[in-house]
Write a protein that binds this DNA or RNA. Structure first.
Lengths: 276, 276
DNA sequence: TTGACTTACGTTAAGCGTAAGGATA
DNA sequence: TATCCTTACGCTTAACGTAAGTCAA
């Protein structure tokens, strides 16, 4: 299972074509064919159906492993490269949309570039050295680390913590409560806004695989847009308390059960100099 | 970064010797030397000091990556091999010492071999197919999954949950309390019994990097032996409530803050047939 | 001198491209 | 027939072992 072969395999699976993968990787079609043949003979199973080119069951399974594997391989190389290189004077920082509130804590004189990225992309980017620092937000139990995809040894530091709230339209019957029980809202109408609010599947992961069905999906990263939808009664969303402040048409009611918090963590490799 | 080279590298680092690694891997000493040279030239850094043979800083860093990487590689291969092979009629089950209480829930007619293993070894063994099922115990927040080393896509199912208790000698001033606050005990005398009780570093991870200093280390997996030490006033330990029952010289006082539970989870690969 | 790593070199095998060979729509 | 994958074949290069070389204790 040579990494080159794996890389070729994922490229073929992604393109659904040997020739397209060959173009991407700078190989000939023939070489790609030989790569796949080598992998299949090594593992003793067909990995791709041809015509159309699509992963078999075993191929799907291999894809699940290959991604993280190649990511870690790159992370390892980057990690070692960083040891030799002089630390850049000005840091490149990646932030998930709901973590931008923590940006003002960065040392102004040492921050060179700020990139807003998807929550899920940040750990990998820090591992690979694309970012010197990552600021990710997420939801967890009060004493637990954020569940991040493992891409290598990263150090996480808590930067900010705010109570988790459910955003409700001002007139909503529950809006005058002082605390809410999330499982009671499992059958409510939710907006799935994975880029902006806490993703619904994360809600399900923490509160048990209950309903939390989405009636609407919101793909932006703009909090005000989402809150406008909430105000219009299109559905509920869970957000950090701070994000809901300053509007009179939306009320944020703290979640009291299960005990959950919204938290921002700073991610860096062991090699980076501490900032937080 | 060919996996073969990485494998050779970790073998050399482990043995502290090129020749010993060569013997283990079935290569000649020369081949091992060439492997290391290839890795070092690829990464552009020295990875091992010679005479004595010991990893450099970059080498240490690489070792941190290489272990998980090779583990996942094996897991991927095993995962796919399992797809083809007929599922074994009788399961091989791995259990961490404090999870043995959940063994009686296993279907008697389908369980063939039970192995008690270190908590940390179980996820890898399930991933690699050595085990059909793993039962691991651990401590977390009430709504969070157990933090397990990632070795591949595993499915975790909660099997048992019991309140987390601090074991105190019966006469201890705190023994009559109905609940304890862990941070208040940060400066107490602890026994570090990573195989039997909740490891102290885990305590620090969850409660903040406070003290929780070990006065004594206990390396067995026998709960009664540990409780005898606690009874003798040699130190405290955190255990699931159930483990403390049935002794009159030790009292288990539930931890009420932070909110933590002791939990047993069943681990299996997607390929395995569900048991829990 | 001896034990242990490195280097030189010849052999073997693996990897890649060119080009011809199927298979499918 | 056109497209796309596979196979055959030759070239190049990388991998390994043998054996000689180097270095430190």
């Amino acid at each position: 299972m040579d990494p080159h072969l794996l890389r070729t395999f994922v490229a073929v699976a992604r393109h659904g074509s040997f020739s397209a993968a060959a173009r991407e990787l700078g190989y000939t079609q023939s070489a790609v064919s030989q790569h796949i043949a080598a992998l299949e003979s090594d593992l003793g199973t067909a990995l791709l159906g041809r015509r159309p080119v699509a992963p078999t069951e075993a191929g799907e399974r291999l894809l699940e492993h290959a991604g993280p594997l190649l990511l870690r391989l790159d992370a390892a190389r980057a990690d070692i490269a960083r040891l030799g290189a002089a630390p850049s004077a000005r840091l490149t920082v990646g932030v998930s949309p709901l973590a931008t509130g923590a940006l003002d804590r960065l040392p102004a004189d040492r921050t060179g570039l700020i990139r807003v990225l998807d929550r899920a992309a940040i750990p990998a980017a820090v591992s690979s050295g694309e970012l010197d620092l990552g600021l990710v937000d997420g939801m967890t139990g009060p004493s637990d680390p954020l569940p991040l995809p493992e891409t290598g040894p990263l150090t996480a530091t808590v930067v900010e913590e705010s109570p988790l709230c459910v955003a409700l339209p001002a007139g909503h019957p529950l809006a005058r409560r002082t605390g809410l029980c999330l499982p009671d809202l499992a059958d409510a109408l939710w907006i799935d806004a994975p880029g902006t609010a806490v993703p619904l599947d994360r809600l399900r992961a923490v509160c048990g695989p209950g309903a939390y069905r989405a009636r609407l999906r919101y793909e932006g990263t703009d909090v005000q847009g989402l809150l406008a939808l909430v105000a219009a009664g299109r559905g509920l969303a869970t957000l950090p308390g701070a994000a809901v402040a300053g509007r009179d048409d939306v009320v944020g009611v703290p979640v009291v059960a299960p005990r959950l918090v919204h938290r921002v963590e700073a991610l860096r490799t062991g090699a980076g100099s501490p900032v937080f």
